[in-house]
Nucleic acid binder design. Structure first.
Lengths: 190, 190, 190, 190
DNA sequence: CATGAATGAGATTTCATTCAT
DNA sequence: AATGAATGAAATCTCATTCAT
């Protein structure tokens, strides 16, 4: 049961994300996915053995892609503030560029206890993230508080800023990014 | 003539919140709700004409209750910082005291276009909230940035802090509240 | 379980006939009957032990009332043609004056093998009717054909004439009755 | 790719007619139809989107088939009396050959306001029928009375004769047809 | 591979009937 | 007697999954 057609896989993926973003997981049916993907329902079973497997697989893919996007261009060669700023921007752009994928992930996590590998992946990002924060704290650039407080600030700031941009309340431009990060940084900095 | 039982309504409410918190909306069935509430499935139809109506009603109730809790004890008699602090605490406590209700709300919003009254209620809180921020900004206590940035900071901070407390990563005590709000305030203050 | 309130009985009767005339037996529910009769559903059980019993009882009453109306003023003192004419008119007026009751009867017979007493009552009318026809045939006033042919003519003529009057295609007046019966009589007469 | 099975459609049709003839519309369930048709209940939903749609579709089909049977072999090349006789026979045979279909139609009409196309079809037959009668009346072969009176005679005669044959009271033979039509003709003829 | 038909398990909904007041 | 609430059984309908082509 090795999938052959990558175009079909991609359209299944896109269809599912879009449907979940539109109306959530509650009314998500295989028939709807297949229809939106332009294939027959039974064809889904050539690519995935069950609905659960399909959603799990999409979730893993989304998580991996997200992880890759979040860490891009934020290597150790950058100064702490710049690194954090880069991650902040990555997180924001990720949310703005892939809203359906994000909604899918958030809806799905709360409805499934994560598979082991997913949990692992999540932890891996948190670990890398924490290392950055840890370094900044050690150098007295960031506040001397428990790491989770710092992480929470960043996540919260990104999430809400993204929500406002997506809702059209804030413009999707440089100034929003500058101001948004400025506030966040004031919360973090020592 | 037996009166429509308020205890039953409450247990339906509780059962639904709990089930959604446990596994989300996807596998939520009327049978499960009825079972958890200790009544027959058909009895649900005495209280609500359909599954959709039931969820809608619960959502409206949750939203109202939340609104009431958020604005409690944060009147205009307080100084801006204290008022904001009170709202911040209200928001945090609300999330920690009624996790199931919160999960239900968040899961449900994305799966339904909100009813007019809900939208109205949401706007009403935002308006009140914005007035507080507006006042603080006018007095040069808060940063001179667009209001949404300030609101976003508070919401984001509360949400993530609550998540960490609920997950057991941060303790549910005074120090968490003090530190959490401190970071938030540093982001906001002029 | 002796019914007390005749007004309630009557309103149950009326409600049921009306509902059946409006949309047939298929969607007829006790709740609908009770609502239309202005009482509670459970109150129906004070008057009838079950839905089936209720319908059976109404059917019997309708049949009796119909029987009484059909034979009224058509005694043996009349000449055969006048007697037949009277019965023809009775049948027509019965259909026009009690359409709901008629519809109920016709819908109901085909959905129930009749109870013994109902069958008996039906037969009683047919017997009396046949006697009239038999007499006319013996006197060479009616055609010398099997009685059912004669009965069929009368019934068919009445039923279709009534339908046309009810539909507004023919006027509900003396001329319709005269012409309608004239055709029928031409079919019957020797 | 399996084609939608015409045999299945036919057996659904047959099963429904038979069940309705047996006990009417009141206790007609999809489960019973499916059982009688030898398929799963859910399979019905492949062919019709709802119970109502199923019954509507069957009704339309029955009506069309009936129309076709009634007008067969009664073209304008026949003399008026023969044409009317042919239609009379068609009507009778139709009732005797397809009793279940007829019962279904009659039960169903009263429980549904007819769809536009059905109403149209009904009118089409009436129009054709009326033309025949009109012609006969113009030639002084039929009585000089309003057309509906003539139509009513024929319909009534057929309906009641068929009922008696179906009930075994009259034999299903040539003599019944001859006598039955004779009476009817005497009613119509000038 | 791909598909539309078919299905069984289960979800929602209805409803005659019973219960408690 | 009368009622509204409650319910179990059953009806309608849905949907993930399998089958046959």
């Amino acid at each position: 049961m090795k999938p052959k057609d990558d175009k079909k896989l991609a359209s299944i993926e896109r269809a599912t994300y879009a449907l979940v973003q539109e109306s959530g997981l509650m009314p998500l049916t295989l028939a709807a996915i297949a229809r939106a993907a332009g294939i027959a329902t039974s064809t889904l079973y050539i690519y995935y053995p069950s609905k659960e497997a399909l959603l799990d697989a999409l979730y893993e893919r989304a998580k991996s892609a997200t992880f890759e996007r979040l860490t891009r261009g934020a290597g150790t060669e950058l100064a702490p503030k710049l690194r954090i700023r880069q991650i902040w921007l990555n997180m924001l752009n990720n949310r703005l560029d892939h809203p359906a994928e994000m909604v899918f992930q958030e809806q799905y996590v709360s409805s499934r206890f994560m598979s082991e590998s997913n949990r692992e992946l999540g932890k891996r990002f948190v670990r890398e993230f924490d290392e950055v924060l840890e370094a900044g704290r050690r150098d007295h650039i960031l506040k001397a508080v428990a790491l989770p407080f710092l992480g929470a600030c960043i996540l919260g700031s990104v999430r809400e800023t993204a929500r406002l941009v997506a809702a059209g309340i804030l413009p999707d431009d440089e100034s929003t990014r500058t101001t948004g990060f400025q506030l966040c940084w004031d919360a973090l900095k020592a």
